[in-house]
Structure formats: C-alpha cells, structure tokens
Amino acid sequence: TTTITTTNEEDARRIATEWKNKGYTVHVEKRGTTFRIEVR
C-alpha cells in the first residue's frame, strides 16, 4: 500500500485519477486540510 498526502484538492484528484487509470485501487480520505490517498 502506498500512501500519498497533499493539502491541494486538485493534486489529490489528479493523483487519484492517474493511479486509477493504471489499474490500482485508490481510496481518498480527507483529514482536516489534508488529503490522504491510499493506493493498493
């Protein structure tokens, strides 16, 4: 599992989409101002 964190919502969406397009399972969680993107 790879975890990526960013405070930028646009980055979070872009990163999540990129990983999904590669065939990975992506889970995005917002904690306060931080977005945690888990890639499996």
Rank of each mutant, 00 (worst) to 15 (best):
V39W: 04
R14G: 04
I37W: 00
E10M: 09
E18D: 08
I4K: 02
N21V: 07
V26K: 00
W19H: 04
E18P: 00
W19G: 01
R36Y: 15
E10R: 09
R36E: 14
N8C: 11
H27W: 11
E38Q: 09
A12I: 03
K20Y: 10
E29D: 07
T5N: 07
G23C: 05
K20A: 12
A12Q: 02
R13E: 10
T7V: 08
G32D: 08
T25W: 13
G32R: 03
E9M: 08
H27V: 13
T1V: 15
E29V: 12
E38V: 15
I37L: 04
T17S: 12
Y24P: 00
K30N: 06
R13W: 14
R31N: 13
G32W: 03
R13N: 11
V39S: 01
E18G: 05
A16I: 11
T6L: 06
W19L: 09
K20M: 14
I37S: 00
A16S: 07
T7H: 10
R31Y: 13
E29Q: 09
K22E: 05
E29W: 11
G23E: 02
Y24D: 01
Y24K: 03
A16H: 03
V39A: 04
T34D: 14
E38S: 11
R31G: 05
V26I: 05
K20F: 11
T33W: 05
E38I: 15
K30C: 12
T25A: 10
R13Y: 14
G23M: 02
E38H: 13
G32S: 04
I4L: 08
K20N: 06
E10A: 12
E9H: 07
G23N: 03
T1P: 10
G23R: 02
E18F: 15
T33L: 12
H27T: 14
N21H: 07
T6P: 01
E38L: 13
G32N: 05
N21M: 11
V39L: 07
E29P: 00
T2V: 14
R40F: 14
V26S: 01
E9S: 08
T6G: 03
T1K: 10
T5F: 15
E38R: 08
D11N: 07
N8L: 06
D11R: 06
W19I: 03
T7P: 06
T5S: 07
E9F: 12
G32H: 04
G32V: 02
Y24E: 01
I4E: 03
T17R: 12
T33C: 12
E9T: 04
R36K: 11
E29K: 08
A12W: 04
T3I: 15
R14P: 00
K20I: 14
G23H: 03
T2N: 08
T7S: 10
R14V: 06
I15D: 00
T2P: 06
E10N: 08
I4V: 07
K30H: 08
T5V: 13
T7M: 10
I37A: 00
W19V: 03
D11S: 07
I4M: 07
E9C: 12
A16Y: 08
T3L: 13
R31I: 15
I4R: 03
A16G: 04
T25M: 12
H27Q: 08
A16N: 02
V39H: 01
R36A: 11
W19T: 01
E10G: 07
V28G: 00
F35Y: 14
T33P: 15
R40A: 10
I4W: 10
K30M: 09
H27F: 11
K22G: 04
I37F: 00
G23V: 01
E38T: 15
D11Q: 08
E10K: 09
T5L: 14
R13P: 01
G32F: 04
W19N: 02
E9D: 05
Y24V: 03
K30S: 06
T3W: 14
A12M: 08
I37T: 01
K22D: 04
I15L: 07
K22Y: 05
T2L: 15
T34F: 12
V39K: 02
D11E: 13
V39C: 06
H27K: 11
G23T: 01
G32P: 02
A16W: 06
V39R: 03
R31M: 13
T33V: 10
A16V: 11
T7L: 09
R40E: 09
K22L: 11
K20Q: 12
N8Q: 05
I4S: 02
T2H: 14
T3Y: 15
I15T: 04
W19Y: 12
Y24H: 05
I4A: 03
T25F: 12
R13L: 13
D11C: 13
R40Y: 14
A16R: 03
T34H: 12
A16D: 01
R36M: 15
I15H: 03
G32K: 04
N21Q: 10
H27E: 07
V26A: 03
V28R: 01
F35E: 01
A12D: 00
I37R: 00
G32A: 04
N21T: 08
V28A: 02
E18K: 08
E10H: 09
D11K: 06
T7I: 07
G23D: 02
T1Q: 09
N8A: 04
T3E: 07
F35T: 04
T17N: 12
N21E: 12
E29M: 09
N8E: 06
T17V: 10
I37V: 09
T2W: 15
D11L: 11
E18Y: 15
T6D: 01
G23A: 02
T33R: 09
R31H: 14
I15V: 06
T2M: 15
F35H: 05
T6N: 02
K22V: 04
K30R: 10
G32T: 03
Y24R: 03
A12T: 04
E38P: 00
F35S: 03
